[in-house]
Design a protein around this nucleic acid. Structure first.
Lengths: 350, 350
DNA sequence: TTGTATGCGTTATCAG
DNA sequence: CTGATAACGCATACAA
């Protein structure tokens, strides 16, 4: 039976809407118009070069004329491929993700892929739900600063290509910014400004990157013979930063790193409203260099992350995995960079 | 032929990955395990109540045991439905979209829908591309402050349910914040502070909302017998705001509204770095009340938008359209609200 | 209530 | 190089 009629329920896409008459054209329509077999149309459209130039021309012309658009569902059914990759960020409200989203997005568009974005609102549970949902429809998944456990991530990665950003999970591809260079510069600067004791306001326990940043800071402080302590572990938000104020004041540090700019901003504002002057009485540093970190008074000194590159690079790596191309070496980690503004200064009494 | 074997290319999802053995279970697998017909499984899983409680139980049990997951593509093929709605924002970098995204997202999750997010980077062309791409895979589309022309939007809306946020297009459902109340309060406040001439820094020409806000401001100023003028039309970004500085200084206004907070922040900072003191020499007002608008010195006075409600409401309306339920009345526009902070004060010389 | 038969639009296999 | 045909997994008229 080579029935080319389009019978059956018209439940298809583009049906029943006011302006839309009949359902979208298919390769069958193109086939009759071009006088070839549907399978030839399929070939011509999906694998260039596997069909004679002449018929290919006829077919593309016919497709153009009918304003043909592939039905991605029909295509995905036999192939399992969707030309879509997912990106899950832990908090859409954190400006730090702006650029990683942009980076991934542009990289995706450039390769004719679509990016599917979701957030987990800092909840491991929601993150898992979102990840599972996405996994069913995407070719690969990018997890930015995931709150999931290593096991959960490994499980996801066993089903589809997964790349994690700013985290390291055994057996899973990852793209991590090199915190070293920014931290090295920052601590050296602090030392030069007479600081001898610093503290660190950590982010969530589950945050691999928070841990990583602390280790880096600790190591450099040791090197300089400075004292370094963690004062708290709180949500990576402005409010989290505020809540760190008491702990910070209780300590003896004259300079404090916060896990990210959001926390640094919260901490600074809370301290200021309690009467402290920044940086005269305390130096504050954040991480990321987000939108708004230069709005504050004083503007925030911070360690800038290569957010855009992270997004681009992560997308590239999923695609490599999807296409089974051997990624070769892990690409070098893009470096961080110290951005000195007004929230850091000479140590009090130094 | 009721062949239940799973032959053919194993190109399906979850194939060829290290840990994954055979392809995912289907309703056929469930059917044999539960001892019923596949179509019964389909019914049991998609339309609760159309199958006897007993068999339903058997089927859900079997599904559970096999860890069954519907293949959304296979489902989408005959039905055309994907349980997914798209949201396109004009600039993912604008914090104003945080809450509309969150709103739409939570509303979507609540109804077991997935939100697909994209941005257009303030480009009408990219927006159209993104919209077209999405249209093929979603059940409905939300356009937040689109830069598209009315015709283009109408065309999209003729194919799938479309809802626009903060814009009005003939024949297309829309959700718009009521600017009136916020503006009314703001202008009244300004009048009380002795201002008699205000100016407006407009956003993009294509921005319906920028126009809307201006009309609202103009009307209230007229009412108070105040003079009101537009000084520029620029990109709705911090940099756009900076570029408005010269025009603002050239005018005689003692208070200026900016299309949004981003512009207001840019304008304020530029003016300040040129030596002006805010609000003593000039009062500045923004719109939206975004993240960071209270970080500045002085903190920005602004007209807060019901961003979250806009997102929620927009999602609801697409869903109504998708489900063909008569939306009934246009829901009332959620109101804006004046938020007085430090960037507004008594008119200079008043 | 449940089973039967078929279609959804595309890709893939196998002949010719 | 091209044509015929069988999956891909699910939903749904229709019959029983």
């Amino acid at each position: 039976m080579t029935d080319t009629t389009k019978a059956g329920g018209d439940a298809g896409r583009a049906a029943a809407r006011p302006g839309t008459a009949k359902s979208a054209p298919t390769i069958y329509d193109i086939a009759v118009l071009a006088g070839v077999n549907p399978s030839t149309v399929s070939r011509a459209l999906s694998k260039p070069g596997r069909v004679s130039a002449k018929t290919a021309q006829k077919i593309t012309d016919a497709a153009q004329e009918l304003n043909y658009q592939v039905n991605v569902f029909a295509r995905a059914l036999p192939t399992g491929r969707t030309q879509t990759v997912g990106l899950i960020v832990s908090d859409i409200t954190n400006p730090a993700y702006f650029e990683v989203i942009r980076g991934a997005e542009t990289a995706a568009s450039g390769r004719d892929y679509t990016l599917m974005l979701a957030e987990s609102a800092e909840s491991a549970e929601l993150e898992l739900t979102a990840a599972r949902r996405m996994l069913a429809t995407v070719d690969g998944l990018i997890l930015a600063s995931p709150r999931l456990s290593d096991e959960e991530i490994g499980l996801l990665a066993s089903k589809k290509p997964v790349v994690v950003i700013n985290r390291s999970v055994a057996g899973v591809a990852s793209v991590v910014a090199d915190t070293e260079v920014g931290v090295t510069d920052a601590v050296r600067h602090l030392a030069a400004m007479g600081h001898t004791a610093i503290s660190y306001v950590a982010g969530p326990e589950r945050s691999w990157m928070s841990q990583r940043r602390w280790e880096s800071i600790k190591a450099r402080c040791d090197w300089h013979g400075m004292q370094a302590t963690v004062v708290a572990s709180l949500p990576p938000t402005v409010d989290g930063g505020r809540r760190a104020a008491a702990g910070v004041r209780a300590g003896a540090a004259t300079a404090v790193f916060c896990y990210n700019d959001l926390m640094a901003i919260g901490l600074m504002r809370e301290l200021q409203s309690a009467g402290l002057t920044i940086p005269e009485e305390l130096s504050i540093l954040g991480f990321d260099n987000i939108f708004g970190s230069d709005f504050t008074t004083p503007p925030l000194s911070t360690i800038k992350s290569p957010l855009h590159e992270l997004g681009v690079s992560a997308f590239r790596r999923v695609l490599d995995a999807v296409d089974q191309v051997d990624a070769g070496q892990e690409p070098p980690a893009p470096p961080t960079e110290l951005v000195l503004r007004g929230s850091t200064g000479r140590a009090k009494g130094a």
